[in-house]
């Protein structure tokens, strides 16, 4: 798969999930890696990039079991970016569907 395309798809998945609710890293990784069959480790570098782009923000929250966990949440600019990604994605799928039908 085209890496650029894959990257876009991963960004789309991460941002969409975080739009509904904040997650900590492990939880998010489990949620995505199970569906997309990627190794669990690939997600953290992506999260770091999305944070650098200021589409995500992180904060520490105490947990009942053990040390504080790092939570990820979407930012306002993240939501704007997600909207655009979703539109692009739908457009892309539509075109591909036209070709393969």
């Amino acid at each position: 798969m085209d890496t650029q395309l894959k990257k876009g798809a991963m960004d789309l998945c991460v941002l969409s999930i975080l739009e509904k609710k904040d997650y900590y890293g492990y939880e998010l990784v489990q949620k995505i890696s199970k569906v997309l069959t990627i190794s669990e480790g690939t997600l953290y570098p992506i999260l770091k990039r999305l944070k650098n782009e200021q589409w995500l923000e992180t904060y520490l929250k105490e947990s009942k079991e053990g040390p504080a966990r790092k939570y990820y949440g979407i930012t306002r600019t993240g939501k704007i970016h997600l909207k655009k990604l979703k539109e692009d994605w739908k457009e892309f799928i539509k075109k591909v569907n036209e070709i393969i039908k």
Binding site: Y24, G25, V29, G41, Y44, P45, K48, G66, R69
Partner: peptide, 12 residues
């Protein structure tokens, strides 16, 4: 930061 992320992953 990256190392801490993976440490947390192991811990959880």
């Amino acid at each position: 930061e990256i190392i801490r992320d993976y440490e947390e992953h192991f811990a959880v």
